Computed example of a mutant assay.
Amino acid sequence: MLIIISLIASFLPASLYLYFIWKTDKNEPEPISFIILHFIWGAVGAVIVGAIGSFFITNSFAYSEFPDLLEAVISAPIAEEFAKGLFLLFTFRSKKFDNITDGLVYGGAIGLGFGMTENFIYFVTFDGLLKYWALLVVIRSSFTIIMHMISTSVVGSMIAMAKFTGGISKIYLIFAGYLTAVLIHGAWNFSVSFMETFYFGLIFITALTIFFVMFFRYSLAKEQLIIQKELLEEDIPDEHKLILISNKRFKRGWIDESIRRLYIKTAVGLAFNKHQYKISSGRQKDFYKSEIEKKRSILKNLTGEI
């Protein structure tokens, strides 16, 4: 019975948070299958790699005066944030991963997967009174899993920025994202290691969550400006432009419903591809040029059907 309850208590919050960040990305929603792939890496792959890395780092603290504290504050953040972010270094090459919001979503998915598995392990192995188990569930489901989501989102957003950055700056951006994630993780683990600092930890994660929401909204607003700028230059019916560059595009009735979703997806994708073409170089530039021509052709065919 404890296994089933622990499974529900760990899976339900993670899935709700994942659904929320996926639905919040309204401009260009990410493929749910690709998001789930990142979630699975966090839940399985990152947990295994992180545990192995943490084991080796922790061994170096074996003769320290505070081995448990050093494991929580140093070895776990270093190993686990590396394990979670590792997958992003492979998937960021995908054409599905092409802006900061994508990095926030995919990084968040990995963090939530990792937090879910970690929570399940804590819940199912807890040996104490029911009221303390319930308190553990509330704290880890409301704060710890959010920490994992945000820390890996930071890595994802910096990797997204690095995708369109050349030279040594690319490495600096990725390392800065990883270091920030480690610091967030370490600060949280340190704060919950002592009763005297526990409430500071709750305040820290609450403030961090507010910042995350604001940064997510800023990223979406920046995307909206790109859509407006790039589509206003396109050969699209004026009455459609005014709708496509606003939130009215999500409403029914302004165009044949059978083509509305494809029309929006193609137009918004065209706007982002034009922006990406301007900030990319080499083979990336050739790829986005091809995508621009392809989407213009699709839009031309769609407007011909209206």
Rank of each mutant, 00 (worst) to 15 (best):
H148V: 04
M149L: 14
M149I: 03
I150F: 04
I150P: 08
S151T: 08
V154P: 05
I159M: 03
I159K: 03
I159T: 06
I159P: 03
M161K: 15
M161P: 00
M161T: 08
A162D: 08
A162H: 07
K163Y: 02
F164M: 08
T165R: 05
G167K: 11
S169V: 09
I171T: 13
I174Y: 09
F175A: 15
A176V: 10
V182W: 13
L183Q: 01
L183T: 13
S191D: 07
S193Q: 08
E196A: 14
T197M: 13
A207V: 01
L208S: 10
F211W: 15
F216R: 01
R217I: 12
Y218F: 15
S219P: 10
E223D: 14
L225I: 09
E230Q: 15
L231P: 11
L231F: 12
L232T: 11
E233G: 04
E234S: 10
D235W: 05
I236N: 02
E239F: 13
K241Q: 07
I243F: 08
S246V: 11
K248E: 14
K248M: 10
K248H: 06
F250Q: 07
F250P: 02
K251M: 07
R252C: 00
G253L: 04
I255F: 12
D256Q: 13
E257H: 10
S258L: 12
R261L: 12
R261A: 10
R261M: 05
R261T: 12
I264P: 09
V268Y: 09
F272K: 10
N273E: 07
H275C: 00
Q276A: 06
Y277L: 09
Y277N: 03
K278H: 03
I279D: 01
S280Y: 01
G282N: 04
G282Y: 03
K285D: 02
